[in-house]
């Protein structure tokens, strides 16, 4: 893992107390994202990890304004993205892009690969005719495909190849920031490493910033500079990858980490597994106080009364827990 120098870099995107609630009929409100705060520095990769349904995709989508936030704000490059006018919004879409989770649903089956990759350029009127084709060929080669693929249709490609097409599409408008929404979860393990390597190379060459979403800590460790652990719409712990692995403080992070097998039978045998009891509660009418209380073995009275704030307990190490001192 390459150690990047991140101190002193400025934040490219800041998320302040972001909330996204969905109305789900009969006056019920689903709190998919419920007060999330973090920031990402230029050139950094922030891993966002949590179990299925905890609101990772919703956070990512609200950050690029695919969803209107219910509350809170997202500041990109000093601009509040909720307050952009039409022209500014269009300009914003050139700078912030997304790579999607499902390589089979994220490419329009009726468009050629060339038109899929060229769509961004068409929308923004960036390049036309020969220049456009040249850029499409260039992008195809950058992501490890070749120019003959431009005239083909998505169904002719494998999952890994489709994900590369999705990456080329995101790159076509030369963005600064990309939300990678579980880009490797649907792929075979051998292909996962290739796609992660590609994303890392691209980051190095183009100075990209990533929000890298995954549901499994082992997937983000390699690529992330810092990792945020999410549970039921809230961030539980946020720190550098190394510290998160070596000294996790939040009981939930500890449980997640102990679920990852260690490739050493000696260590693996002597390890104390922390088993999480019960299922993730529903984000419809979540409990008062700490979101994790129902599955936490250290739970105290205060956890049921008051939601813990995300505090900086050590430099660069944020935890939302009443128990951690």
């Amino acid at each position: 893992m390459s150690e990047k120098k991140l101190e002193g870099r400025k934040n490219i995107i800041e998320v302040n107390n972001l909330k996204k609630h969905f109305k789900v009929g009969k006056g019920q409100i689903l709190k998919a994202v419920d007060g999330v705060t973090f920031s990402i520095r230029e050139g950094e990769t922030l891993g966002l990890v949590g179990e299925s349904g905890c609101g990772k995709s919703t956070t990512g989508r609200a950050m690029i304004r695919l969803y209107e936030a219910t509350e809170g704000e997202v500041i990109f490059d000093g601009m509040n993205i909720q307050r952009l006018n039409r022209k500014e919004l269009k300009n914003f879409t050139k700078q912030a892009q997304m790579i999607f989770q499902d390589p089979y649903a994220s490419l329009n089956p009726r468009m050629t690969v060339g038109d899929i990759i060229g769509e961004g350029m068409d929308i923004h009127g960036l390049r036309k005719g020969k220049e456009r084709m040249a850029k499409i060929y260039e992008l195809l080669e950058i992501v490890g495909l070749n120019r003959e693929h431009a005239s083909r249709f998505p169904h002719e490609f494998s999952g890994g190849q489709r994900q590369r097409i999705g990456i080329a599409r995101a790159l076509s408008v030369e963005p600064k920031f990309i939300v990678c929404d579980e880009p490797i979860s649907a792929l075979d393990v051998s292909i996962q490493a290739q796609v992660v390597n590609l994303l890392e190379e691209l980051q190095e060459e183009m100075g990209l910033t990533y929000l890298f979403i995954a549901h499994d800590l082992s997937m983000v460790k390699h690529i992330s500079d810092r990792i945020a652990v999410m549970y039921l719409g809230a961030v539980m712990e946020l720190t550098t990858s190394k510290v998160l692995y070596d000294e996790p403080l939040h009981p939930y992070t500890q449980a997640l980490l102990s679920a990852i097998p260690i490739p050493d039978p000696e260590v693996e045998r002597s390890r104390n597994r922390i088993i999480l009891e019960g299922d993730v509660p529903s984000p419809i009418n979540p409990p008062e106080g700490c979101k994790f209380q129902k599955r936490c073995k250290y739970v105290k009275d205060i956890c049921r009364e008051k939601a813990p704030e995300l505090r900086e307990v050590k430099p660069e190490h944020f935890v939302a827990c009443h128990i951690v001192k």
Partner: peptide, 9 residues
């Protein structure tokens, strides 16, 4: 893919 198109503006 519709989300992707929206993301592209």
């Amino acid at each position: 893919y519709v989300m992707a198109a929206k993301t592209l503006g």
